[in-house]
Design a protein around this nucleic acid. Structure first.
Lengths: 103, 103
DNA sequence: TCAATAGTTCAGTAATAGCGAACTATTGAA
DNA sequence: TTCAATAGTTCGCTATTACTGAACTATTGA
């Protein structure tokens, strides 16, 4: 069983969030997650054409460790949701502002 | 004479801006530049204790190439200003929102 | 002309991204 | 139970990038 690292709300840093979002693919992933409001990684929901599974897994790990998403197991799959409440509590308006400009 | 690379306004990308700001030192540099509204790199204005000159130079280069600052020579020194108008035109509110949470 | 100052560039090392291959965990069916 | 299929992670590799001190360039002023 793999345990996921999720920083607590107060451990989410601005630099960490910005670094996590400073990648077009991860920006798209977060945007997509918010639009679907529930998303399975990899092939299904991730808008990542022709990207290696391991690379995708790494992107999700970076988002997770930055505190942007929460991952839980649901059968074989992983369910990822954006930690909107935590991010908004920590940096009000930041996520919305950034995503407004995301492709 | 060193020529500086400054992307045009429309070449400024969201990912580029976020990547440039996804470093605590560079966030502080930009914040400091805005507060002073005019700033010489290195020792004088940069809030960077004990950081190598080359590292600092590199940070300024990254900010410059992301389109966040404009550098011009003024005698021996370099004058750096934040390209507020360009950033705001491209991503209204983004800079203000991010800097509001910067240390 | 020369020393002092401000920055950049260079070379080396350390850290990180991206990839395929191998591995783990869960489901569902024979 | 056992085995194949599926979803992700981890590993080993290579390629790119960051950090640093040392050397270099450019400008000022004596």
């Amino acid at each position: 069983m793999v345990q996921f690292v999720h920083p607590s709300r107060e451990d989410i840093t601005l630099a960490g969030v910005l670094a996590a979002l400073a990648d077009p693919m991860r920006l798209r992933i977060v945007k997509s997650l918010l639009e679907q409001n529930d998303c399975m990684s990899c092939t299904e929901a991730a808008p990542c054409p022709g990207m290696a599974k391991s690379t995708l897994s790494n992107h999700f790990r970076i988002l997770r460790e930055a505190g942007l998403i929460q991952t839980s197991k649901k059968g074989v799959q992983h369910r990822n949701i954006v930690r909107e409440a935590d991010i908004n509590a920590r940096f009000p308006g930041l996520l919305k502002t950034i995503l407004a400009f995301a492709g």
